[in-house]
């Protein structure tokens, strides 16, 4: 080795890594320590996640258990209420009927239930964090790198501790999805509030608004288009994560895709994949149309 080293000393040539014994010791200590800790607290963890688990189960049962006509009707009403656009409603109806026709209705319902819960959680978590981040540069300097890690860390990596802590099932799946889906919500809420016209916030101050009044009357409404983009992104990312989440025991379309990968079931893979795409498009068009509808007042034209 020394011969290929341009005559440099060993320490510069080969990277001075920790030797394997130390590494093995370190690994063992951390892993067993972590497992021990989890085992010790397992009762508490189970108790805290139990309500969530049963909520997820209940929601899934109600989605799967309800007659498909009812679910479809509710879905279409929601799409109509949000988008007020017949084309979107028609597209959603056709997509859902096609999904049902190829026999993926029940799996789609499972996925839908999961994505619904994950989106609600991600928005409920991301909005307040985004608001706090927008209010303080110091908070932002802490939150931003955390978000960078959340978005770039391969989801399989953080699935390991999640599975160690929560085991296999819907709860760890949901946590994995929320970790992945919440950053755009936080980022875009933060961005949206920071981009609000400073003259308008100054006007709010000049009229003696309190911080809350300013937030509710000015900042949130004006940041709404950006925030709605965040919600939209969160939904899309939740959907993208359901395949990964299926590895820790979440059922639905994701699990079918996973099985298809393992068994090289070409047709099943594509059918399930397209079902996911169909849901994604329905959600995307609906949430975007909703966001646009909230901005009706921006339409110019002197009256």
């Amino acid at each position: 080795m020394a011969t290929t080293c341009w005559g440099l000393p060993e320490v510069i040539c080969t990277f001075p890594a920790i030797d394997t014994t130390t590494m093995r010791e370190m690994r063992r200590t951390i892993d067993t320590g972590f497992r021990g800790l989890v085992r010790e607290w397992s009762d508490v963890i189970d108790a805290t996640t139990a309500p969530l688990q049963s909520f997820l189960n209940m929601l899934e049962r109600s989605f799967v258990g309800a007659p498909w006509v009812v679910v479809l009707a509710v879905l279409l009403v929601v799409v109509w209420a949000a988008s007020r656009n017949w084309k979107t409603v028609l597209g959603a109806a056709l997509a859902m009927l096609a999904i049902g026709w190829v026999g993926l209705w029940a799996d789609t319902m499972v996925t839908l239930a999961m994505v619904t819960v994950c989106t609600i959680f991600a928005v409920a978590l991301g909005l307040p964090v985004g608001i706090v981040t927008a209010r303080s540069d110091r908070v932002q300097s802490v939150v931003n790198p955390v978000l960078d890690v959340m978005q770039t860390l391969p989801s399989f990596v953080y699935l390991i501790p999640v599975v160690v802590i929560f085991g296999i099932g819907k709860v760890p799946g949901m946590i994995a999805v929320v970790i992945y889906a919440v950053p755009p919500m936080i980022r875009l809420t933060n961005l949206g509030i920071r981009l609000v016209d400073p003259e308008v916030t100054e006007a709010a101050d000049a009229f003696g608004s309190s911080r809350t009044q300013k937030l509710v009357n000015v900042q949130l409404p004006l940041a709404l288009p950006t925030i709605m983009t965040g919600v939209n992104q969160t939904i899309m990312m939740s959907l993208a994560m359901v395949v990964v989440a299926s590895m820790v025991g979440v059922g639905g379309l994701g699990r079918n895709v996973l099985q298809a990968i393992n068994n090289q079931f070409f047709t099943i893979g594509f059918l399930n994949g397209f079902a996911l795409v169909a849901i994604a498009i329905i959600f995307d068009r609906t949430s975007q149309a909703f966001g646009k509808r909230l901005q009706k007042h921006r339409e110019a034209g002197h009256g």
Binding site: E199, E202, H297
Partner: peptide, 8 residues
């Protein structure tokens, strides 16, 4: 100067 009205 630039009115600073609430657009919504």
């Amino acid at each position: 100067q630039r009115f600073a009205l609430l657009p919504h």
